[in-house]
Simulated assay, not measured.
Amino acid sequence: MLRIHFTSEDLARVTIGYNSSLPVSEAVMSLQALRCGSGPRFSAWRHLVGKQLPARASLLGSLVPASGWAPDFLTPGPDHATPTTGAFDAIRGTPRRHLKAELHRLSSRHRLPAWTQLLAHGDPEALDAVTDTLSAYYDVAVTPFVDRMRAVLDADRAWRVHTTAHRGVGAVLAGLHPQVRWEEPVLELPGPPGQGQVDFHLEGRGLLLSAHIFCGSRPRALLNKAGTPILVYAPVWNLQSDSLVAAPPNARPGASKALATLLGRTRAAVLEALASPAGHSTKQLAQSLAISPASASEHVTALRDAGLVTSLRQANTVRHTTTALGTKLISTATRGLDPRPGS
């Protein structure tokens, strides 16, 4: 069990991360999902990625075990987390002592091939080979799926921000995973089997909450004595889009039959599309359903007048999302029950 201790200053410095481009750590974590399965959510993704692996992907397989800890130098911190903020340059610039310490830690748990000795001694060619391969793998495993991943992460972030505003930071911490316990001022997380209790004090540095598509079901704590500690967790997925790879338009199921019978096919599809906490603008809604903006606006207005949808203006954009009543109606119809009150 890991116990993370907060002060009042730490609670005030809890932040919810956001990157416009996705961090390289997603690619590193996805190597584990690629090898150990991780369920039907990633089945189509595994099939596509498995056919396009870089020629030297085995280099990454040697450094990233099928589960558990992977060397931190492969996952640069918040300031250099993404390709656009210099992640690969940061990896190439990893100090020799850091490489040696992390590969020693990895070798105590897994048998490493001989070439990793060169990496441990800071050999530039070995480090370049690993970095280039990781960059090529990122382009195969992450880049083609950015829009889908970003939609899931944006919806989760919107939900966490909403929870913070209405119930406080403690509710966000407690809601990260069913096995996470928040008893102020301590956050308890499940640890690996056989590991005893570990206590970590944030000491005023706060905590960055960072949702990752491929982090696995349990939150991962990236704790250190310098910089901002990070807690990586799995986002909540929209039940209407529970797959990393979107089905082609002609293969997507329409709105649930019960909902379509009640509202009409297009209006039901509009309501379901707005079920994400992040919502959609009218333009996004029209594009996702292949209808005109005028038609999308008409259906949203009718649903809003019925109390099923709410619309909020953000700068020059109006975003629409379902109300609690709209979400309940979708849930009831999906279960095949009569959605009428009193049924």
Rank of each mutant, 00 (worst) to 15 (best):
M1C: 06
I4H: 04
H5I: 10
E9K: 15
V14W: 06
I16D: 01
S25L: 10
A27V: 11
V28N: 08
S30E: 12
Q32Y: 04
C36W: 00
S38G: 09
G39V: 05
R41F: 07
A44Q: 12
A44T: 11
A44P: 00
W45V: 05
R46P: 03
G50K: 07
K51Q: 13
Q52A: 15
L53C: 08
L53N: 09
A55L: 13
A57H: 15
S58V: 03
L59N: 08
L74E: 08
T75F: 07
T75L: 09
P76N: 09
P78F: 08
P83G: 14
G86I: 14
G86D: 15
A87C: 02
A87E: 01
D89F: 12
A90H: 13
G93H: 15
P95Y: 01
H98C: 05
L103M: 02
H104Q: 11
R105W: 12
R105F: 04
R105I: 07
S108M: 10
S108F: 07
R109S: 13
H110N: 15
L112D: 03
P113G: 10
Q117A: 06
A120S: 10
H121R: 11
D123A: 08
P124Y: 02
P124N: 08
D128F: 13
V130A: 07
V130D: 01
D132S: 05
D132M: 11
T133F: 14
Y138A: 05
V140M: 08
P144R: 11
F145Y: 15
F145L: 11
D147I: 09
R150G: 00
A151G: 06
V152A: 12
A155H: 10
A155R: 08
D156N: 13
V161A: 03
V161W: 04
T163I: 07
A165P: 00
A171K: 03
A171P: 00
L173Y: 01
A174L: 09
A174H: 14
L176I: 06
L187H: 05
P192Q: 12
P193S: 07
Q197S: 07
V198R: 12
L202G: 10
E203H: 14
R205E: 04
S210G: 01
H212C: 01
G216F: 03
P219V: 07
L223Y: 02
N224F: 02
N224L: 05
N224R: 15
K225C: 07
G227W: 02
P229N: 09
L231N: 03
L231H: 07
Y233I: 09
A234V: 03
P235F: 05
P235N: 05
W237E: 10
W237M: 03
S243N: 08
A246M: 04
P249D: 05
N250Q: 14
N250M: 12
G254Y: 08
S256D: 10
G264S: 12
V270T: 13
V270K: 02
L271Q: 10
A275H: 12
A278I: 03
H280I: 01
T282N: 14
K283H: 14
Q284S: 13
S288P: 02
S288R: 13
A290W: 07
I291N: 00
I291F: 12
S292N: 00
S292E: 01
E298V: 00
E298H: 15
V300S: 10
T301A: 12
T301I: 10
L312C: 02
L312N: 08
T317N: 02
H320Q: 14
H320Y: 14
T323H: 11
L325R: 15
K328W: 03
I330H: 10
S331V: 12
A333T: 13
R340C: 01
R340K: 06
P341R: 10
S343C: 14
